[in-house]
């Protein structure tokens, strides 16, 4: 390929990468479909993200290839352009790698918090794919801790406030976070937001991720444990905590049809035996 051809390729890839970053937040937030189909929306966001990333990587590779291989150039100006774009591409690539490495290292509070919770655990129960940790506490807490030893933490107050069916739905929600690897989605979105903190697309992916993982986990829980039970749990907790977002999540569940009780299948791992 000629120097000109390569430079065109680089420019096209870089342009497409920027276009993807600018357009996806606009296109993906049109209408209400993303709130009704959060899992599909989440997939679309990450497809767009990785597409933009690949295009940017292709632009960098192209610029380096151009700088290394082009031997015949038409003019002095073109020679400078080819060399400069190669170095700039490599420089940007190095900067991103360094930034991601440092920010990823800085945000590893995961292990510690789970260990602290384990220290005061009332019981630890090894289940398929995670450890269910029940701990004494008067706050309504249920959360999933992703990682090498995934855990779901449940406070005693939560168990006392909800019925078994409702608790089962909450557990199904947390289980969906772990199964659908939402920890990774949040982490990637977070690093992306740190890298692009000055421009809108950087924050857009993170905003969408935080919202959509909750709704996607709600959907999975509604299918497995029953939408009515999940909606009831959300309403009870919304009233107890005065949190409108949980109430709205409950309202959202009523906008769709869900499998009947006979067709639901609750995974063995999240079954709670009535005591």
């Amino acid at each position: 390929m000629t120097g000109e051809g390569l430079l065109l390729f680089v420019a096209a890839c870089a342009g497409a990468a920027v276009l993807t970053a600018v357009l996806s937040p606009l296109v993906l937030t049109v209408g209400r479909w993303q709130l009704l189909h959060p899992r599909a929306a989440l997939t679309a966001w990450f497809v767009a993200f990785f597409l933009g990333l690949s295009l940017a990587a292709a632009a960098v590779m192209g610029s380096v290839v151009a700088a290394v291989t082009v031997s015949e150039v038409a003019s002095h100006g073109q020679a400078v352009l080819v060399t400069a774009s190669g170095w700039l591409g490599l420089g940007a690539f190095g900067a991103v790698i360094a930034f991601v490495a440092t920010s990823a290292a800085a945000s590893t509070g995961v292990g510690q918090s789970s260990q602290v919770a384990a220290a005061v655990a009332r019981s630890r129960e090894e289940r398929d794919g995670f450890t269910l940790v029940r701990f004494r506490g008067d706050q309504l807490i249920a959360c999933a801790v992703p990682g090498k030893h995934p855990e779901i933490l449940l406070s005693t107050a939560m168990e006392e406030t909800l019925t078994v069916s409702q608790l089962q739905a909450v557990l199904a929600h947390e289980y969906a976070h772990l199964r659908q690897r939402h920890g990774w989605a949040v982490r990637i979105a977070q690093i992306n937001a740190l890298c692009l903190s000055r421009v809108r697309p950087g924050r857009a992916l993170q905003r969408a991720t935080v919202l959509l993982i909750e709704l996607a986990a709600d959907d999975a829980a509604a299918r497995q444990a029953g939408a009515a039970h999940l909606a009831n749990a959300l309403t009870v907790l919304a009233n107890a905590a005065g949190d409108e977002s949980m109430h709205l999540r409950a309202v959202r569940l009523t906008a769709r049809r869900w499998p009947s009780a006979a067709r639901r299948r609750l995974p063995q791992a999240i079954r709670i035996l009535p005591t």
Partner: peptide
Amino acid sequence: TLDQAEDRKAALLAFAG
């Protein structure tokens, strides 16, 4: 400690809040 975790959303996928 949960509150102090550098970014709670990254570390914990909580049911509420």
